[in-house]
Design a protein around this nucleic acid. Structure first.
Lengths: 230, 230
DNA sequence: AACCATGATGAGCACTACTCACTAATGAAG
DNA sequence: CTTCATTAGTGAGTAGTGCTCATCATGGTT
């Protein structure tokens, strides 16, 4: 005698429950192996119910990823603001990305393999937020150039691509569940690589370069003094 | 009265025809949008015929990509052997990868988004060949280290990841059909970046040492100021 | 207690990869 | 040339999956 309990939840709550279950099923099975029937079953509803809240399976994944991503990036800015100096800030951006992947490979796999390949990707907040944060990396590099710490003869876009692409490439084996990696070690190496690639070359130290760097030092000292008094 | 002409081709030839058609349909539509029915229709056979030659749609894509990839890499070695010097050889590896993507974005999208995410990927010759050629890049780097041209204090794997990951990241917008890129310009920038990142630093001039110490002083002040305010 | 907006249902549809019993083209043997 | 075995090719049909929609019933409101 299987009497179905039909609990009637408020819209937002039911939506949340479905998304939470969906997130886990997507993580475990991957997008195409995750069945709407299974998501529905685990959420304690019938398949049709899902479609009352989401236009389709794709949109469901998008919403799930968006929510996850927003949470991930919540305290990003505060942590970054606390850090001083190009090297520390750069390393943080790299290390953070590596760590996110290390902590939730299932979700990252969904983003890398599915979401990013879809045409809807561009109108996703994941797209916007990603742009925002890669732009932040570009800013760090640009500031280092402005202060004379970095040379300006390499296109920063390419440097950014080597950073983010390098991170992903480095984590692939792990993402396929066939190995591990150290976010710390990788972050150190990549930061060092970028730093050396962009720092001013040593051989010729013309007066102009020396002056620029002296000015940068002076500016930093002024800044330090200012923040110290405040 | 449409009497179907049933031409009976030798196994190898029919297989080739199907693969050729499949390659184009996959390129145009992407994996999941490409229908076996459409591939069959364009190849002038019936759907069931495809399954006489391939175990399934996935395996069909795998075979298609394998054949394409083998052709792509055919003259790789000869071109590389002709080049002398770390910089030229390194640039060639990068430039070549960029150019392959630029020339056949549809096929590369299939590899990046589909094939590489499947569990079968490891038993693919695409996997083996890719390993082989990224290993070749590592060899170039290692040789430069052995000859004293490069320093040995960075993990080469990470450098390789920044190269190949950087290439892919750089070509994304293009792969989504929303822009273009220059293989030459990107190859130049990336080569330069790697070169600077790994080349030995020249002995520092006295002025340089003085600047370094000034910068260190600034850094210390910043730190004490920062910890004071916090 | 009556009402009704709306959360939830579940049978069924459309589509697609894949199967299999069967058909006939081809080339060799008699 | 005829016969026959081999096997390329067929196409109707199946299973599984995302998705729809007419209908039910629940829980807050009046």
């Amino acid at each position: 005698m299987k009497k179905k309990r039909r609990s009637r939840l408020p819209r937002a709550q039911r939506m949340q429950e479905i998304m939470q279950v969906a997130a886990q099923v997507f993580r475990d099975k991957g997008y195409s192996e995750a069945l709407t029937a299974q998501i529905a079953a685990r959420a304690g509803v019938v398949e049709g119910t899902i479609y009352r809240y989401f236009p389709g399976k794709r949109e469901l994944l998008i919403r799930v990823v968006e929510q996850w991503y927003e949470r991930i990036l919540a305290d990003y800015d505060q942590q970054l603001k606390r850090l001083q100096g190009t090297r520390a800030r750069l390393r943080f951006m790299i290390w953070r990305h590596l760590t996110v992947i290390h902590n939730d490979p299932g979700m990252c796999r969904l983003i890398f393999n599915q979401l990013r390949a879809w045409p809807e990707y561009r109108r996703t907040t994941v797209f916007d937020l990603t742009r925002e944060y890669t732009r932040r990396t570009l800013e760090i590099l640009q500031q280092a150039i402005d202060s004379g710490e970095f040379r300006a003869d390499l296109p920063l876009r390419v440097v950014r691509d080597m950073i983010y692409g390098g991170v992903e490439h480095h984590t692939w084996v792990y993402l396929r569940g066939e190995g591990d990696f150290s976010p710390d070690a990788a972050a150190d190496a990549m930061t060092e690589m970028v730093y050396r690639g962009l720092a001013h070359a040593l051989p010729a130290a013309p007066a102009e370069v020396a002056l620029r760097r002296l000015e940068a030092v002076a500016s930093r000292l002024e800044h330090s003094a200012g923040s110290a008094t405040v």
